[in-house]
């Protein structure tokens, strides 16, 4: 064994020497047997899993192709643009978003149970997952790093307006903030307010006004895309 447990015992508890040259803290955790460099760690796991017939390398390519090229916020933007253009679709979206997005061919992993929440002059909605990084993948793709950051997870619930200011968003007086902490398998899509001056636009042009952040609630539609 390349890294005997004994070396790590010293560093296993609070108050133990923190700077000891040990890659990981917990001697009970098998992951500490892997190399400490993350790239080498991943390489080792990949080698093991592929050699043992537990992972198909072509499946890895397929997964990456899905989330690097096919699934992303352009899909959520299509839903929002449709809701802005078609009042009957908007009503169906707010009543049962999972069924409504399926009309547009959108469904899947981390979007099995979707709820759409609409911004109004009275209420601005904003989504977070304080416990991990739950996010509506089929509508928005992979979450941005900030969404997964400790800073967003810790602060969005207590000081949403300060966080919004960091995104350049300031809300008018009288508009309350409702922060949705995604603690279950329900995934939230924010339907931003339709920007003024967009009356004559068709769905394709409208969807260009819908940024990823506006569907998480840290941006406004039409602001920056």
């Amino acid at each position: 064994m390349r890294r005997p447990f004994g070396r790590c015992i010293l560093d296993s508890g609070f108050g133990a020497p923190h700077d000891a040259p040990m890659p990981h803290d917990h001697p009970d955790h098998p992951h500490s047997l892997l190399p400490s460099d993350p790239a080498l760690r991943v390489k080792a796991l990949e080698t093991i899993l592929v050699r043992k017939g537990l992972v198909d390398p072509a499946a890895m390519d397929e997964i990456l192709d899905t989330y690097e090229r096919k699934v992303g916020p352009h899909l959520g933007a299509k839903v929002v643009a449709r809701a802005w253009s078609d009042p009957a679709f908007r009503d169906r979206l707010l009543a049962d978003a999972t069924a409504a997005i399926a009309e547009l061919g959108i469904s899947g992993r981390q979007g099995e149970h979707v709820v759409a929440v609409e911004n109004t002059p009275d209420t601005h909605n904003m989504v977070v997952c304080t416990l991990c990084s739950c996010y509506p993948w089929p509508l928005l793709g992979i979450p941005p790093a900030w969404y997964k950051s400790d800073a967003y997870r810790a602060r969005a619930v207590r000081e949403p307006r300060k966080v919004l200011a960091e995104f350049g968003v300031s809300l008018p007086d009288g508009q309350k903030v409702r922060v949705w902490d995604s603690t279950a398998e329900v995934r939230y899509l924010v339907v931003p307010m339709r920007p003024e001056g967009s009356e004559g636009l068709d769905e394709a042009a409208l969807s260009d006004l819908v940024s990823r952040d506006s569907m998480i609630g840290t941006g406004l539609a039409g602001a920056s895309k």
Binding site: L64, Y67, E68, R69, G72, P73, H74, V128, T130, L131, G141, I142, P143, P144, A145, W146, S149, D150, A151, Y152, R153, A154, R155, V157, R158, V163, E166, F167, G168, D181, S211, R212, D213, T218, G219, S224, K225
Partner: peptide
């Protein structure tokens, strides 16, 4: 379980669109 914790820094926005992994 960090919701509401004090002391974290500013959130740093990123470009819109599909997120590069």
């Amino acid at each position: 379980d960090m919701g509401g914790r004090y002391g974290d820094p500013a959130v740093i926005p990123e470009p819109q669109g599909i997120v590069p992994i």
